[in-house]
Amino acid sequence: MQTLVQRSFASELRAILAVANKEWTIFRRYPTWIAAFLFWPVMFPLAAIMTARALGGPSGAGFGAFAQLAGTPDYVAYIALGNTVYMWMNITLWGVGLTLRNEQMRGTLESNWLCPVWRISMVVGQSLQHLATSLVFLAITFVEFWLVFGVQIVRGNVGLVLLVLALLVPCIYGIGIIFGSLVLRFKEPNAMVFLVRGLVMIFCGVSYPLAVLPGWMQTVAQYIPLTYAIQGIRDIGLRGASLAELTPTLMPLAWFAALLPILGFVTFTVTERRARRTGALGQY
């Protein structure tokens, strides 16, 4: 098949940036995002923190059991760290995961996919904008926890924290792209977000130590990358772990970081081919 289009690395890069810019324009068009970015970082973990405070009791009778299992008496920082990683995952599912579906609903997916660029470049562009806004969200979280609870959630070796975050980015966006592809296929995004984020909330020890889970649930937790990311960040911040001590946690996370983007690409390609073959791209 002949085409007049002259695709190059530069043209793909321009397409990625154009999509990121378009997503950014839509994002800032609704100023309520400011309220969301200020509200959720502290208010979401507040539910678990206050529940923990109630369970601990006015005299602190219950905190001994928590400290023994969690390895730290600082329940606020413990819950805050787990919930911050969870919130990042959650907003990625709603953001990256639903972008394709939103295009499908608006009726622009088919026309956009007629452009002479790789489809995956469009998804990468959407993820890029999302990553930038997520980093702002994380920065706000750190500041708000310090102001509201007097808790610094970036503690210990900052370089190691950044290493864990760097390994977490491909995991989260890999999952986001897999998720977005599946939403395109099954068309019930809300239910799927509830399922995936629910699995993370229950199995990854977002608010509690994994030791409290039954054995089979701990086994399931080992197959979710967020388990290692949460554990790593807590080990650095609450126990001052060194790189050597973190290695058993970082190795599985590194494997997930290498495999999940590839799995995301494969899932997206298969879903895209199937949608084109069945003519289901415009259906919703």
Partner: peptide, 10 residues
């Protein structure tokens, strides 16, 4: 998760 959080305290 709230149930398991509770279990951590009891």
């Amino acid at each position: 998760p709230v149930y398991f959080l509770g279990q951590t305290f009891v």
